[in-house]
């Protein structure tokens, strides 16, 4: 333990990241540049999220790490173990108990509360990137609030697929000002971004950007008047816990077309089963 400074990063680096976080909270949705550090993991594995988490952690914190909703997948397990080793903080899988939650591409089903911090891992923070490749130009577009191009993308979706086919990383407008990429969360989670009591922080390591949503921020998913935004999920109930309103993963179970749908949020699913709920294939715990 003594080989590392608390939470891996040195104090001056954490101070620099905290300044970026504070600036991000002061200007919701604005991408604040920061001097991203090399972390002992590859880009794309959550280097941005890890740095934001490291800057937020205090010894009293209880950390939860999820990867696509699950607490027990590689990314979640290795990041959780990383902070256990370098910060010696308590860890948990229960959403209600956690004070800091680092997430990859999901918002937990259990509603968050005041005092919690949700840290997102972001691969590409710029929502306009695939429409306008020039960074100088996208910065100018944010500066001047020229967001017509974002609707061109949605227009193309409808023209090609008959509906808005964007199903994750669905662009949102924050407090009527900045258009923001909510990281690749399913659009099912978009309604939870707005008016959320928790602090939401977004860290992009490779792209060196931090942005934030302070508690109770207004977040609106972009849409057309005649094609309103619709959060979507698989039209099934969870096969383990029977939940009707949670986001589901489809799991192939054999070579004969067998499949099941399970909650992507493992903590939520386990909690329901512990309370005696069962689904089509589940057994009472």
């Amino acid at each position: 333990m003594t080989d590392y400074n608390f939470a891996y990063l040195d104090e001056q680096t954490k101070r620099m990241i905290r300044r970026a976080i504070l600036k991000g909270i002061a200007v919701p949705g604005y991408q604040v540049p920061f001097a991203s550090r090399e972390m002992p993991m590859p880009y794309g594995w959550g280097t941005g999220g890890v740095q934001v988490t490291a800057a937020c952690l205090v010894p009293e914190d209880k950390l939860k790490v999820i990867d696509q909703g699950a607490d027990d997948t590689t990314n979640a397990v290795s990041i959780r173990r990383f902070f256990q080793r370098t910060a010696n903080v308590a860890v948990t899988e229960a959403t209600e108990e956690a004070t800091v939650i680092q997430t990859r591409h999901r918002i937990p089903e259990t509603p968050l509360t005041e005092g919690q911090i949700l840290v997102y891992q972001v691969p590409i923070p710029e929502p306009l990137r695939f429409l306008e490749p020039r960074e100088t130009e996208t910065r100018k577009m944010h500066e001047l609030e020229e967001y017509g191009l974002m609707h061109v993308k949605l227009y193309e979706d409808i023209a090609r697929h008959g509906q808005i086919a964007t199903s994750y990383a669905y662009p949102v407008k924050v407090e009527g000002r900045y258009v923001m990429d909510p990281s690749p969360i399913p659009k099912f989670d978009n309604p939870k971004l707005g008016q959320n009591p928790a602090i939401q922080l977004f860290g992009a390591g490779r792209e060196q950007r931090i942005y934030a949503l302070p508690p109770y921020t207004e977040v609106v998913s972009l849409d057309f008047d005649d094609h309103p935004f619709q959060p979507s999920k698989a039209a099934h109930d969870c096969d383990l816990c029977g939940a009707k309103d949670s986001y589901l993963d489809e799991v192939i179970t054999d070579d004969a077309g067998g499949r099941m749908f399970v909650c992507s949020d493992t903590d939520f699913c386990a909690g329901r089963r512990a309370k005696g709920h069962t689904g089509r294939l589940g057994e009472a715990a």
Partner: peptide, 16 residues
Amino acid sequence: GGNVGERLMAVGARHY
């Protein structure tokens, strides 16, 4: 269609 519509959307048209 998107090319022609871009200027409309840029000045606030929001009806597909």
